[in-house]
């Protein structure tokens, strides 16, 4: 079975470490916050200028001046800090964020990522995505392995305009956990009940399959 959205978030959460500063993108990455292991402290960075993002507010706490990068109303945890956009991107571009999790349309064996623009469709903008992928060393891309029509999104070379070049090393799809090294995807783990053959069939880019590919457990 392909991983559910929640399982993708749970698997990403296993990469968290105590004391990490983490930036979570919009969509599935946001769910990772629900699976921080018991007893572990992580601090969420929101690129509009909040380090230490908390839960959504109650009706009583609601404040138009407290939002996250998705423009949702949020709260701040004790120990949070709030700052300008320039300060926020100094953290991001200066490599101070320990883990960045974001979605993508395509990734390729060179570590390129395309996530912001589909030519011919309306272009809304890249927001902070280009800064995040250029500035972070530790990035996990979460995405579906193939399109609804079965076309692979893990390619030898991205076909869409890039968000960043040569910056992605870890990809979690609904089918597999992969790393990118020396111009190839390396299959590290597979989703429960998903065969290596299925992953091979749905990976267009060069794929190295180690002798043993463990199945994820949840």
């Amino acid at each position: 079975m392909a991983l559910s959205r929640e399982q993708i978030a749970m698997r990403v959460a296993r990469e968290l470490q105590d004391g990490f500063y983490v930036n979570l993108g919009i969509g599935i990455p946001t769910l990772v916050a629900n699976y921080v292991p018991e007893g572990m402290e992580v601090m969420l960075q929101s690129e509009n200028g909040l380090l230490g993002m908390g839960a959504f507010p109650t009706e009583a706490e609601l404040d138009a001046d407290m939002i996250n990068a998705g423009k949702q109303t949020v709260t701040a945890i004790p120990g949070a800090s709030i700052f300008s956009s320039a300060e926020s991107f100094a953290m991001i571009r200066g490599g101070h964020v320990d883990l960045t999790v974001l979605g993508a349309f395509e990734v390729d064996v060179q570590g390129n990522i395309a996530s912001w623009m589909i030519p011919g469709k309306l272009i809304k903008g890249m927001g902070g995505a280009m800064d995040l992928v250029a500035g972070a060393d530790n990035i996990i891309v979460t995405m579906t392995h193939a399109s609804k029509h079965g076309e692979s999104k893990l390619l030898d070379s991205c076909t869409l305009p890039l968000t960043g070049a040569g910056c992605i090393k870890k990809v979690l799809t609904d089918l597999a956990w992969l790393e990118i090294e020396d111009g190839a995807f390396i299959l590290r783990e597979r989703a429960p009940g998903v065969s290596v053959e299925e992953i091979v069939a749905k990976t267009a880019g060069k794929l190295i399959v180690p002798d043993h590919v463990p199945e994820m457990t949840f």
Binding site: S85, A86, R93, I123, M126, M130, D131, A134, G164
Partner: peptide, 30 residues
């Protein structure tokens, strides 16, 4: 369309009398 961090830095640099700066953000992209 300008990456968000680049946009913030463009304003910051503009206000600080810095005419231009170098960034990795956007390299290899449109």
């Amino acid at each position: 369309l300008t990456p968000q961090g680049t946009l913030a830095e463009k304003m910051r640099a503009g206000g600080a009398g810095i005419p231009a700066f170098f960034t990795a953000t956007g390299f290899g992209t449109p």
